[in-house]
Simulated scan of single mutants.
Amino acid sequence: MSDITLHITDRDGTTHEVQAPTDMNMNLMEVVRSYELAPEGTIGICGGMAMCASCQCYIESDHELSEMGDDEDAMLGQAYFVQDNSRLGCQLHIHPDMDGLAVTLAPEEP
């Protein structure tokens, strides 16, 4: 299997069912950008280095994801609108086990 289905709810509340390749080492932030599910310049501002929280999302499904690293944990500690299910999209690399994953993009920082 090279593509999986993701359910991404944008900041306007619209849910998009998108296909994401598992064989290109993409992360969730890059998928959101490639489908233009957030206005340009509002997501992935740091380029996926876990140095901003512009790609913060809320995990809405019960998928078992990779553990949060120290950089991601530290960045979320400084971010706005953090919830228990918050993750940085740039730190979630697309993997076949993520098929059916549902996420909601966090609001933009004030």
Rank of each mutant, 00 (worst) to 15 (best):
Ala74Tyr: 11
Glu64Gln: 13
Glu72Tyr: 08
Asp97Ala: 15
Gln83Gly: 13
Val103Asn: 03
Leu6Tyr: 02
His7Ala: 04
Tyr80Asn: 12
Glu64Lys: 02
Ser2Asp: 14
Ile8Leu: 05
Gln91Asn: 08
Cys57His: 05
Gln91Gly: 05
Pro39Leu: 04
Glu72Gln: 11
Asp99Asn: 15
Cys55Met: 07
Gly100Ser: 10
Leu37Asn: 04
Arg11Phe: 01
Glu67Thr: 00
Ala106Asp: 02
Cys90Leu: 05
Pro96Ala: 09
Ala74Pro: 00
Ala102Thr: 14
Asn27Val: 06
Pro96Ser: 08
Met51Gln: 15
Tyr58Ala: 11
Met49His: 12
Thr15Phe: 04
Asp70Ala: 13
His93Glu: 12
Cys57Glu: 10
Gly47Gln: 11
Val31Ile: 15
Glu108Ala: 14
Val103His: 02
Met75Val: 08
Ser34Asn: 13
Met49Ser: 15
Val103Gly: 03
Tyr35Asp: 09
Leu37His: 09
Ala74Phe: 13
Gln78Val: 00
Met68Phe: 07
Gly41Pro: 05
Leu28Arg: 00
Pro110Asn: 14
Pro110Arg: 12
Gly44Ser: 06
Ser66Tyr: 09
Thr14Trp: 00
Leu88Ser: 04
Leu101Tyr: 06
Gly69Ala: 10
Thr14His: 12
Gly47Val: 01
Asn27Glu: 08
Met29Glu: 09
Ala50His: 03
Asp62His: 10
Met75Phe: 09
Gln19Lys: 13
Leu37Phe: 11
Gly44Trp: 03
Gln56Met: 13
Asp71Arg: 12
Cys90Ala: 07
Gly47Ala: 11
Leu65Pro: 09
Ile8Trp: 00
Ile59Met: 05
Ala50Asp: 09
Thr14Leu: 11
Gly77Tyr: 04
Met26Phe: 15
Tyr35Ile: 12
Thr5Phe: 02
Cys46Ile: 10
Thr42Pro: 02
Gly89Ala: 15
Arg11Pro: 02
Gln56Asn: 12
Asn85Ile: 09
Thr5Gly: 01
Asp12Gln: 14
Asp62Trp: 05
Met26Lys: 14
Ala50Gly: 02
Tyr35Leu: 11
Ala50Thr: 04
Ile94Phe: 07
Thr5Glu: 08
Ala20Thr: 07
Leu88Pro: 02
Ser2Pro: 01
Gly100Phe: 10
Arg33Cys: 13
Ser86Phe: 06
Ala79Met: 05
Tyr58Cys: 10
